[in-house]
């Protein structure tokens, strides 16, 4: 009796916790939803000209049309491909450079200075140069993304490696760990939080670089779709493109944050878990 009672109570408690979880997760979306609603009302009431700012309903219609005729998926795929290749290259190169300069003084002397100099250049200003160097194909767009995303990854990982607590390194030496063991067991996992932070920054920069690259000179991609729309005064298509960019940024950030929760379980739930 009492057992079933306590069980139902615990089920209740669980349900209560689920509800409060749903509320916590959903209330963050409340104000954006209200804003969209307000926008729709303002458009329908004729307060905003449809040429300047089409209504959300109209945008949904346009988006659906773009999806149906295949132009949105095709362009999205092209953009995604450029972003992922560019970002992948940045991740690979950034991690390798940070490892070299983080793990050896000589490496730092050789690698760090030029990267710090390059970092101060506004990467977007390199777009015309990249077009001259690499033509108007895929290379300049991918490489611009790579260049932009490289620095956050390199800088954060380098800092992470350098700020490993020397007490851990001492401890590892007294335990007789070899250099490669120390790198594998202590340095890399210790620098992982910084690397992930760098990855999040880098993703943001990657999308930014992509937008510019695709608007300067492109035959396809979301940016190209938007530039085309400008010629035909299609505000709605431009806005759809903006929304797609925004969603891409949100989704990629969410992916990294989920990865963080899993990779840094020792840290995130440090105070709670077993």
């Amino acid at each position: 009796m009492s057992e079933s009672g306590s069980r139902s109570r615990s089920v209740q408690k669980l349900r209560g916790r689920q509800l409060s979880f749903v509320w916590k997760e959903s209330r963050r979306f409340l104000s954006p939803v209200l804003l969209v609603l307000f926008w729709q009302i303002a458009s329908a009431g004729g307060f905003v000209s449809a040429r300047i700012l089409p209504s959300p309903a109209q945008l949904a219609h346009t988006a659906w049309g773009l999806i149906k005729d295949g132009s949105l998926p095709t362009n999205l795929l092209v953009s995604l491909e450029r972003a992922s290749i560019g970002f992948g290259l940045a991740l690979g190169i950034g991690v390798i450079l940070a490892l070299i300069s983080g793990l050896s003084r000589l490496g730092e002397d050789i690698i760090d200075a030029p990267l710090q100099i390059l970092r101060t250049l506004p990467a977007l200003a390199l777009a015309p140069l990249f077009i001259l160097w690499f033509g108007i194909g895929e290379e300049p767009k991918i490489l611009l993304v790579t260049l932009g995303a490289l620095f956050p990854i390199y800088l954060n990982l380098h800092k992470g490696i350098r700020s490993i607590d020397p007490k851990f390194l001492e401890m590892s030496r007294t335990l007789g760990l070899s250099r490669s063991q120390i790198i594998r067991e202590v340095v890399l996992p210790g620098a992982l939080p910084d690397l992930l932070l760098g990855v999040r920054y880098a993703l943001g920069v990657a999308w930014l670089m992509l937008v510019v690259a695709e608007q300067v000179n492109a035959e396809s991609g979301i940016g190209h779709m938007m530039m085309d729309a400008e010629d035909f005064l299609r505000t709605d298509i431009i806005l759809v493109g903006l929304i797609v960019y925004g969603l891409l940024g949100l989704i990629s950030d969410w992916v990294v944050r989920t990865g963080e929760r899993w990779l840094l379980a020792w840290q995130v739930d440090g105070g709670k878990r077993v």
């Binding site: 007490k167 851990f168 401890m171 007294t174 335990l175 067991e185 202590v186 996992p189 210790g190 840290q267």
Partner: peptide, 24 residues
């Protein structure tokens, strides 16, 4: 065969307790 116990435990926070014990 020497072992040192320091004032701070110096456990690696990213390894579970048993993994810290047999580190290396």
């Amino acid at each position: 065969a020497v072992s040192v116990v320091f004032q701070e435990s110096r456990l690696l926070p990213w390894k579970r307790v048993w993994q810290n014990v047999v580190l290396g």
